[in-house]
Design a binder for these strands. Structure first.
Lengths: 199, 199
DNA sequence: TTTTAATATAATTTG
DNA sequence: CAAATTATATTAAT
């Protein structure tokens, strides 16, 4: 998350954004729109609500790679998810997205191809935690299921994971715990209730 | 008809301390920042004063009622996401159909029971907006991302939602816009930077 | 099939 | 109200 430091300047950048009329200032209470007109499907087919998927891990990557000649090459983002371009090339398990469509595929190739696909669909490749990572995470979780940023960072360092992975892991872990609690509670209530009916 | 509510809609006292949902016992809110110390089993308990949470939507709650026979019946509000199709009807929270509780629980019952429980855990059940509701909200948002109370009320009426839901929706929507704005700015700066390296 | 990492977004809390 | 978090419903990878 430390990335935004680059964001500071470049005013020209914001100009080329479609739509987005700086939403903080104009409160446009003047706009005469009726809900009926909207319900009546007044379609302004302009920019459909910038449904930009959130792909934070892509921010860290760059299209720049060094070739064998030690010269930079720009790798063109090939992707089409919706109509946006996404570029890969970065992160843990890294594969090249230059699709060489010339032969048939080994198991390994097929695997990475699958990973490619999911990549292009815009989803972060699923992280496979090691047994040790899980163990540590579980131990920490036992003591504190809401670790603050400092603990998460420390964990990230020690376990060699992104802090983001840690945070997500804790989120999912809490959800899991809650699920199991709910289930046992349900059973308890159900049993209590059921037996109360039998008395 | 002559039902008497046994269930005061109040999960009294309860959890809902800041950051300490009730399903895990008291947790350290103040942490010492070393994983070693955590792994080394440092436990620390501190009671935090509970404040009564604001749960306005619980006021309508009546689950356990006495029937005419003076026996308890469990009334389970059933959310109809409609098992049939994926659309239509909104407002899961509001439309309640009563299931008479007998011996066993169907999958549907179980589900809604679980929802009940989470309800009592203190959080409003997540509202699932319909496609149409979203569409209208998005359209309004395009024109005015800060609708006043009157517009919100009107929307609420037309979309059959609480005005509160509308308000929250707009808040979240503004946050989303802002986020995406930030992100595209970042990407642009990044790309500018990258291509400047190629010149 | 089951579990769970990842995503999107509704709800809550703070200031 | 915005910002930051948290919860949760889904989706999809394994």
């Amino acid at each position: 998350m430390a990335s935004t430091s680059l964001c500071a300047a470049n005013p020209s950048a914001s100009q080329s954004l479609r739509k987005v009329p700086g939403f903080v200032e104009n409160k446009t209470t003047q706009c005469s729109f009726s809900i009926e007109s909207i319900l009546g499907l007044e379609q302004k087919k302009d920019g459909i609500a910038a449904a930009k998927p959130h792909r934070p891990w892509m921010d860290a990557c760059t299209n720049l790679v060094l070739g064998d000649d030690n010269n930079p090459h720009l790798q063109i983002p090939v992707v089409s998810y919706d109509n946006s371009l996404f570029h890969a090339n970065s992160n843990p398990v890294q594969e090249e997205k230059v699709l060489k469509c010339d032969k048939y595929f080994s198991v390994t190739e097929r695997l990475s191809f699958k990973r490619e696909l999911s990549w292009y669909r815009g989803r972060r490749p699923r992280t496979a935690f090691t047994r040790n990572q899980i163990e540590v995470l579980e131990n920490v979780f036992k003591m504190n299921s809401y670790p603050g940023i400092d603990i998460r960072e420390e964990l990230a360092r020690k376990l060699d994971l992104d802090e983001d992975r840690i945070q997500i892991w804790f989120q999912n872990r809490r959800a899991k715990l809650k699920r199991s609690h709910r289930e046992s509670q349900f059973l308890m209530v159900k049993n209590n209730f059921t037996s109360s009916l039998l008395e």
